[in-house]
């Protein structure tokens, strides 16, 4: 059964006060991620917004072991932590969590991540996807959506983002999930489920960014929810190759699969200002095709596996 919001643990390993921007989606999710692991963890983090959130020496804002590493090396560092803990007989003491942004994961970090996934090394990799290089001032990444203006796509990005969870699924790892920082219970449940699986577990987490997407910091959760309702972000998991929609995306599918229009989502954020009708229509077509694929997969894999089980 999915966890309800009131049932989330009160324990927080994220201390009051950190250096993240107001309204940063990472902070909401990090509470659930660390709680789902009971703080029995070591996390490794590359150069990113999360580094900034973590604090500057000698003050830290998160009370779990945390190893900072170079930008391309997050997954390899997690492999090294897992190997080091095994070699010293401490592998049962904590879960290894790699946590990096979309650029650190899908661009500069994808080589090390692909290697670790092919070896099925024993750690959770969580990508918080704020859809651009936010820490360096909003440059486009491979995860930036089409139409978004960044400091390296002044007229709006032309390409749709790469599908990182699907790339990770192609490695044949035991667990792949897509979630959103605006759905803390979905984040919590997926990390808690991943905790009990061995091998490489990949969780992709959409993370609204007020400063990079240009919206009011009070609207982080509303915009994250709208992204799901509009189908730009889909909440799902793939356990041993079997796909199922979860949380809000599963409810949308159950209610007939109707999504809110992309145009409405685009209108909420300054980064899409000036986006042409053609460009919006093109993104809408991309969303519709993807959503139809997810619905078909959910029906074929999840619903049929349920039928088989009953």
């Amino acid at each position: 059964m999915p966890t309800k919001i009131l049932d989330l643990p009160d324990t927080s390993y994220v201390l009051p006060g950190n250096r993240a921007c107001a309204g940063c989606g990472i902070g909401i999710a990090l509470r659930q991620i660390t709680a789902a692991l009971d703080g029995k963890m070591v996390m490794t983090v590359p150069a990113s917004c999360l580094t900034v959130l973590g604090g500057m020496y000698p003050i830290a804002s998160v009370s779990v072991p945390w190893l900072n590493v170079a930008f391309p090396s997050t997954a390899a560092a997690a492999s090294g932590l897992a190997a080091g803990l095994r070699a010293t007989g401490r592998e049962g003491e904590m879960t290894v969590l790699a946590m990096a942004g979309d650029g650190g994961t899908g661009d500069i970090g994808i080589q090390a991540l692909s290697g670790a996934a092919e070896r099925n090394d024993d750690f959770i990799y969580l990508c918080y996807d704020n859809e651009a290089y936010m820490n360096t001032g909003t440059q486009r990444s491979g995860s930036t959506p089409a139409g978004a203006r960044t400091t390296t796509t002044w007229a709006g990005k032309r390409e749709n983002p790469k599908d990182l969870p699907r790339i990770m699924e192609a490695h044949g790892i035991p667990y792949v999930a897509s979630t959103s920082a605006a759905f803390p219970t979905d984040v919590y449940d997926k990390v808690a489920k991943a905790r009990d699986i061995h091998g490489l577990r990949y969780i992709h987490m959409n993370t609204p960014c007020p400063s990079g997407w240009s919206f009011d910091p009070k609207d982080t959760v509303a915009i994250g929810k709208l992204a799901v309702d509009s189908g730009l972000v889909v909440l799902y998991e793939v356990v041993d190759g079997v796909f199922r929609l979860t949380s809000r995306s599963a409810s949308l599918a159950k209610a007939g699969g109707r999504l809110k229009p992309v145009a409405g989502y685009v209108a909420t954020q300054g980064r899409f200002r000036g986006m042409s009708d053609e460009a919006i229509a093109s993104v809408q077509a991309w969303v519709d095709t993807r959503w139809a694929g997810y619905l078909a997969r959910d029906a074929a894999e999840h619903c049929s596996s349920q039928t088989t089980a009953s």
């Binding site: 190893l67 390899a76 090294g80 190997a83």
Partner: peptide
């Protein structure tokens, strides 16, 4: 650890050495 690059080779040593 049969890594996919030298960058990762030294990274694995860095993280494992950090653990002790």
């Amino acid at each position: 650890v049969t890594v996919e690059s030298e960058h990762s080779a030294l990274t694995v040593c860095i993280a494992a050495s950090t653990v002790g």
